[in-house]
Design a protein around this nucleic acid. Sequence first.
RNA 1: GGGCCCGUAGCUCAGCCAGGAUCAGAGCGUCGGCCUGCGGAGCCGAAGGUCCCGGGUUCAAAUCCCGGCGGGCCCGCCA
Length: 633
Amino acid sequence: MQGGPLVQALLRVGRCLEDKTGVPLDSFVKLLSKTPREEYGDFGFPLARFFGRAEQVLPEVQQCVSIDYVSLSLWNGFLNVKLDERGLGRELFELMKGGWRPEPLKTETPRRIVVEHTSANPVHPLHIGHARNASLGDCLARMLKARGNDVVVRYYVNDVGRQVSVVVLGFSLLGIEPEELSTRLGTKIDHAIGWVYAVTHTAIDAVMARRRGDQEEAERLAAQLVKLRERGDASLADLIIERVSSLENPEAKLSEIMSRYEAGLEPERSKVRALSQAALEGFMETLGRMGIGYDSIDWESDVVWSGLLAAVLSKARESPYLTKHKEALALDLMRIVRERVGEKERERLRLPKGFEVPPMILFRSDGTTLYWTRDIAYSIYKFSDSKADQVINVIASEQRLPQLQIRIALLGLGYEREGLNMLHYEYEIVRLPGRAMSGRRGEYVTLDELIDEAKERAAKEAALRNPDLSKEELESIAEGIAVGAIRFSLVQPGATKSITFDVERVLRLEENTGPYLQYTHARAHNILEKHGQVKYELAEPEVFSERDRRSLLIHALLYPMVAAKAADELRPEDLASYLLKLADLFNKWYQKDSVIREPNAGLREGKAAMVQLVSQVLGSGLSLLGVPPLKRM
RNA sequence: GGGCCCGUAGCUCAGCCAGGAUCAGAGCGUCGGCCUGCGGAGCCGAAGGUCCCGGGUUCAAAUCCCGGCGGGCCCGCCA
């Protein structure tokens, strides 16, 4: 029985209601909520808003539902659903005996969905900002998959463009390989690359600032270089700075590397690839620790070299929307909007009314392409390669404009389906106190450091509580707590909230955190461990007459619907708050009622079944959030 | 200047999209309790708020509309 006894019952009510009153099931599910007062029943739906003559049809609906543990009533325009906990319990025990487990309700309209996330540039280590992207993206993918969709997770390696060229230039000025530097600095390779990137980038900017006479800026950058110098190898930093300063035209150097790479010429072709690959391996190691993986790694350079980009560009050249902007070839997006975008499209594109869309420049004057140009081609590829109905791009909201431009460009170039079904899942970036993080200045808190710090704290705490644990067990538990704490803290606030990074907050282990949920799960698991196999046939539904157990039961049984809704609405934060509430109810009950010391066998097995249910819900929900559901901690 | 996001307890935030039935909530912090009970990463209690401000719509507004104010982001031949 999909959804379990409660969700099935509620859906039956919804369907009958749709049948008898025409109120869509969707609206019912959307607006159904817990009642504020017990005497109204358990769930309420504001029926009067949709249907005036409720009194007349109520008996019909009731009869249509015909589930003995469900009764309906009307109050103040609300249709209230009251559950009989004994009937619900009886049904639950029966299901559990048959091996039923709570899981998100499967969708009736499965789609093929691509989720592209993280896609950090291979020029600096992953930092806490990327972690938010990765955590959100991975969580969306998990939820959508569990909902029954066919999900393909992709990572886009941005190895074409200016940024990678900066690192390549930096290494060639140093005359050493990334591996060597990594060894010399004693850091992961992506950290070493990030250091070279920051030093080179800042050195170039400083030189340029000085040359154009911006003394103030030059001094600021010089100060930054001092910091960077201390953080790595001072003599190597000096070498980069010195050689950058002696370059006649650093920009021309970068431009040369870029265009040769785009053209696929050696040695740039091997060099840039190798460097990106090295950084990527560092990323995957970190993401692997976080429990995050991909179905496909897509290289931006492949989009260029495979001819995909050329095909799109030739379309663009023949397009009626081709124009010139500041001497460069561009797409006249405003004209596309005027000619191709109606009210419906405007909404799908999320284009604000009256918004002036700037033209999209397709090429730099040195002939190389811009990232958004390549992104048009890649977008088409994501749809075609995965035969996707929808593509979700998890990208910071600061990129809203270019993302919108890409959607409009797709529309204008004849890729209407792609343009309209591409969703920019926006999230606010993580800020450091007082400032944004900056890869090119080397200002960031790396994810590796954060995990290690969290792990250390967790290990201390876990060792205190579990002196019997082996080193290996402790290690893996601490890692689980660290990952749980970090991921939960990044996914729990709504994606539109900007987060100011605060180590203390992220690593907290108390209520309203990932570890709190993990702890609750471990407690539940512990009871079951001590209790042994649940004997469902002995379980007495009467056990749920007690208030706290009753609310726990009802809340836990709602899980399949909550998880389904969170998935459809792409709102992991809703799942997070639901789980917190469940944990609260569980812990409150736990405090004053014992399972294994319950003398009455019927009640004991009933409670055990309830704990089993809660533990399964927590286990499933935590997995969807990417928080490891630990059994001990 | 234009577009978008955010503004709720000292702090971090939920509720707003789909206005209602004790809707003013949670956590942190503060203060006070609970360790001979299945794990105290827990539980119980107290203090703490003009829901940024001003209008409007409505029988009803934290929620919708308009106008302000404060903070953030974007408006680059960077990504």
